[in-house]
Write a protein that binds this DNA or RNA. Structure first.
Lengths: 252, 252
DNA sequence: CGTATACTTGATCGTTATCAAGGCCTGTGG
DNA sequence: CCACAGGCCTTGATAACGATCAAGTATACG
């Protein structure tokens, strides 16, 4: 999948098409003439290994993208949100399966035509590469998370990213929705459903988040959340002095 | 980083240049006129966050590519081998640091020129995308490994990949070299050095691998290794019936 | 040959998975 | 509107896997 990651990038993807509506200068504009398709919650968009005949632009709703291991365990490699492109696997077969978390609306586009069009457009090519780069960066962040963060750090990182996505649209809003189930979150963070639940409870008890229904959550102490996420930056402490390089190599 | 992953692809990258030596039809041929540079074992090629002014083609030796977390923990996101391209981050800054595991020889190329050249060449563009796709697939495999494989499965997966890389050059060879330290392997697999060591010992006791010096290992039961790696395929059992989907969702 | 580094092995502890039960929403049908 | 059923989620008890702490051993390099 290709998520429109950082806020700045996400904006620059779109703003150009306003100026030149005729020639497709942003990737989404390729899809704009395609009919809107729907998919119910839980529905499958495609399976890992399927012939990758189409790409999709997610217009509304949330998708989960995952792999099933030989023994049946599921690993969710990402969630996709409106504006993201799905299935840009650049291979003949999809690398993963994609399912709707919520009811979803999307536009379909032939992969072959997409590749030809983007390939022959000097404007679109760098946009595709930028998306691939964002996706790669996200994958590496996820590897870091899975490699050496504990349950609390994982969940805080996750909630923080949700908050950041939310704030791209609505600055100052502190309620983020979590349309996915606890099991989805667990399979995304490499934890069990019980650990996610327990950790969520602990964050609530600490007053860092507050309950706001089953599928949303109120972030009470964003700064604290960022700290617990264990990502040196996220809240601009990238300028703060590096603290105690001595206790490096602690736990995994 | 961009590793020449699957055997077939790796070959197709190279074979074309033999036919047409004049026009660069494979990505490496761009580098062929650049002078060979050297780097001692342990030397740094670039740091995460550095301006990405250059790309590199690794000609000889092994590199490790990694991120350092805020608290000093290190996550190795990959190892690079001869033929791989390094630093194709597609961003203005490198996403990771790169160090030499062994003494290394490589060729340097301006990132700007690389992007322009590849961008304007209909032959090279798909090669770059194919590499990016391979890298993405590798990153996802790593996420699966880190998400839900135990220590033994992780190490077996790692050894198996080393064996496969080796067999691309020398079919039938069963000794793979592990130029990296145990600490490197641990930081790559999300384990501690002690766990790597213990697991290695256990595999030796089981007769699956045999000792062959500190920096190489003999694979005695490749089939068994593939089975323990917990990857349904890897040894063509992708054609075997899916066994017991009931015990899905076991451990993480 | 001796020292430093890398690796192995052992004992113990902690985090998280697993097993098990209970509570809470949601939707459905009476 | 209420009762009930089935998910989904939470909470508790226990166990296992791997991290951590601590020696001890091999290997490389001067």
């Amino acid at each position: 999948m290709l998520s429109a990651n950082s806020a700045e990038r996400a904006q620059s993807y779109n703003e150009v098409v306003v100026a030149f509506d005729a020639a497709p200068i942003c990737l989404q504009s390729l899809f704009s003439k395609q009919p809107l398709e729907q998919l119910d919650a839980g529905g499958t968009l495609f399976f890992e290994g399927d012939q990758a005949k189409h790409l999709f632009e997610l217009v509304e709703g949330v998708l989960r993208v995952f792999k099933i291991m030989a023994d049946g365990r599921r690993v969710i490699t990402g969630f996709l949100y409106p504006g993201d492109l799905v299935g840009v696997s650049l291979r003949n077969h999809y690398l993963y399966s994609a399912e709707a978390v919520t009811p979803v609306r999307l536009r379909r586009f032939s992969r072959k035509v997409f590749e030809d069009t983007v390939g022959s457009s000097p404007e679109l090519r760098p946009l595709l590469l930028a998306r691939l780069c964002d996706e790669m960066a996200a994958a590496q962040d996820q590897m870091v998370l899975l490699s050496c963060k504990n349950a609390e750090e994982r969940l805080c990182s996750f909630l923080l990213r949700q908050l950041q996505r939310k704030r791209e649209q609505d600055r100052s809003c502190s309620i983020v929705d979590l349309p996915m189930t606890r099991l989805d979150i667990a399979d995304y963070l490499g934890l069990t459903i019980e650990t996610v639940s327990r950790t969520m409870t602990r964050l609530t008890n600490k007053g860092i988040v507050g309950p706001a229904g089953r599928h949303s959550i109120r972030i009470l102490k964003a700064r604290m959340l960022a700290h617990l996420a264990g990502e040196g930056d996220e809240c601009d402490d990238r300028y703060s002095p590096v603290i105690s390089l001595d206790d490096a190599r602690r736990r995994h």
